[in-house]
Design a protein around this nucleic acid. Sequence first.
DNA 1: AATGAATGAGTCTTCATTCAT
DNA 2: GATGAATGAAGACTCATTCAT
Lengths: 231, 231, 231, 231
Amino acid sequence: MARKPAKQAVDSDSSDPKKSELTRIRILDATARVLSEKGYAGTRLTDVAKYAELQAPAIYYYFSSREDLIEEVMFAGISDMRQHLRAELDRLPDGTPPMERIVFAVETHLRHELELSDYATASIRNSGQIPEHLRSRQKKEAAAYDRIWRKLFSDARADGQLRDDIDDKLAQALVVGALNWAAEWWDPRRASLDTIVANAQTFVRHSLSPLPAPDEPTGRKSKRKTPAANS
Amino acid sequence: MARKPAKQAVDSDSSDPKKSELTRIRILDATARVLSEKGYAGTRLTDVAKYAELQAPAIYYYFSSREDLIEEVMFAGISDMRQHLRAELDRLPDGTPPMERIVFAVETHLRHELELSDYATASIRNSGQIPEHLRSRQKKEAAAYDRIWRKLFSDARADGQLRDDIDDKLAQALVVGALNWAAEWWDPRRASLDTIVANAQTFVRHSLSPLPAPDEPTGRKSKRKTPAANS
Amino acid sequence: MARKPAKQAVDSDSSDPKKSELTRIRILDATARVLSEKGYAGTRLTDVAKYAELQAPAIYYYFSSREDLIEEVMFAGISDMRQHLRAELDRLPDGTPPMERIVFAVETHLRHELELSDYATASIRNSGQIPEHLRSRQKKEAAAYDRIWRKLFSDARADGQLRDDIDDKLAQALVVGALNWAAEWWDPRRASLDTIVANAQTFVRHSLSPLPAPDEPTGRKSKRKTPAANS
Amino acid sequence: MARKPAKQAVDSDSSDPKKSELTRIRILDATARVLSEKGYAGTRLTDVAKYAELQAPAIYYYFSSREDLIEEVMFAGISDMRQHLRAELDRLPDGTPPMERIVFAVETHLRHELELSDYATASIRNSGQIPEHLRSRQKKEAAAYDRIWRKLFSDARADGQLRDDIDDKLAQALVVGALNWAAEWWDPRRASLDTIVANAQTFVRHSLSPLPAPDEPTGRKSKRKTPAANS
DNA sequence: AATGAATGAGTCTTCATTCAT
DNA sequence: GATGAATGAAGACTCATTCAT
């Protein structure tokens, strides 16, 4: 549920993170949650405070305004996502074929979005609703995130692993869209995350590949063979 | 009843489109627009009034409350979508193969969402944000809409036109998600709607088909052969 | 108590000033009063509303913000003062000797400040306390007001009616200061306004004149011969 | 007791100026400053703390509440003034003529107000704005201060040194008012304090005297002969 | 002696809603 | 049918004040 505490670990060299910093994170977490549930305009500081288990004015001890707070959450959402994907991709063996990299990115995006972080959902869902002046930092990160995917697709294209009758950018938009939307419908009780991942991977692989793909050889944690739901 | 603007209302069978009814529609249209731009909580009656070119209190002559108004727009969004898809599918020749029907549904959904109606976008984007007590009617419509797609998929499955290694429901969710998300990124200046449609159709067809599909034979208005963007 | 309704009369050609405009003026009057009693920072919209006999949010129907409202009152204070003094001086016969004009200005300033207007007091008392960005309009008016007095003094100087051993500008500052401060101590029960005026005139005349002045010949309404208090 | 800053506290008879006492004074000084700049309601403990170079809660170690602190500053302002004037007057040679004593008081008041103390300005400017329950001590001091001046005037009157056509009390109010107001306009860059003093003395002397006064013989530090500004 | 963290009371401001016209 | 005027409820934000350390 809580966002990856990457920052905190980086910020404080000591092994004892201060109570203050924890409170700050509690506020951010609470905001991410409310934001993803209620949307930008619906995010009340009182609700945030409730989840963070403090009084609303206390928020101002940590953030100078509601907008600041929200901006930070929105930024963290996309920024964490980018860093996470970047890091995961970098861990793949050098020779990994482009399509495998795409399929791996699908898994990474999905797991991050659904498992790790309200921040991602908050960021994804509200990117169209926050006022312009809160967007600058996110725009840059979003562009960078887009570039990662673009590279995956152009590599695949160069390698002849993308269908001719499909446009790279549009295909990318459709793929990422399908993944983003998963946050709207995924219900852990309906299908396990592993199942979702496996299905999404198959789905994407075939939507893009020029020929019927051989049996998929990759898939980090998804060892399931039968991707049927209700697992 | 008229969902999309004045034109439609004027075209309607009612021989006397009263000014009153037109105003009512102007308000609904304005609400759909604001709702899709600002989200549920961000939708202010003053903004609605601005677009509808009247004063906020005038809205109360037509709707008993903000919630009522919004509920009606949200309902209309999903309801129109369902009726539209239903009607279009019914126009297909009887023998149309299941996969062709799916691909046709893709086009219909996409065109309706992107071309025809702020209502659809409003409905799609805010389905997760409106309070429970406004949801009942929509839920039913959404379920009905879902059933249409489900039937398309189960028919395709029965006909052996869906890959074995993919779950029907999840595939459906991924497909519809990819389409829904298009409203977030589509920019008419970047790619024509026809292009989007063609790409999405190819994308979906192959993501689902067990074998490389033959050259797609259908596509109402999309006569384009090369689905590359920037058309 | 109420400010001279100059504006209102000017704004509306009809003899029936709208209720709305009256409310607006009630708010301004209330603000002037609170402002002069409590100071800039102490001016609560709730207090203003109380005196204006409405609810605080109603103020926003007429003014876009507390600052706007206050700015308008402060501006009106100095602006009315200037216009009033200007108009009164212009009514003096052409040949009026410079010192008589000064003494007449003393009366005008005093009567306006003490009798007519909370606006003047509000403006005088708070000129040093309002934030910079509310000051621009007032500064100009204040400068213009200052210029009127400056002219009075320089004319008197040119005419040899000012003592040699006193600086024009400093004398002016002392005179106007003595008058401004009257708002702090004047209690109608202690001394009539006429008495104050007569004393202030005598005081100023002799503080400035090079020689013992002859029996003062002027004084609009102050026919009193013995300027003793408790009149 | 020490009113004006550290220096004075250091000079004081207490042989052990504890750090604690110095901090207390820093807080008082800071308060006087903020109070005279922002007014009663505008005086925030955070601002006070800033000038005193500590954190706001630290103030509570020295004062039990904001009101207490402000009350003390306001009281000190008028009290110091009174003591100062009293002490200075007592140093005048016994035979000093009443008018000389008045003129000397003018200088003392002015120098104290403009040169020595934010306390005086704070006290002067805010006497009308602080809530009733903070006033009692000041009222007494103010009355005592008033009595000093009253005595100066009644002595002058008894001695035939005041014009007949002017009321003692009103004259006194005008004189002190002119002096008090100086804090509002005096800019050290525009005119030296000595110049102000000299001009104010001349101004007052002639405003009150029944006959053209002889060359003024007194003036502690003001050796200037030509009271023109910009010295 | 002083601060970091937090709170409660209150203030400005927004907004849906009402009502007389 | 529609608006001008006004209100009540709620939300962001400020600030004096407290308390543990």
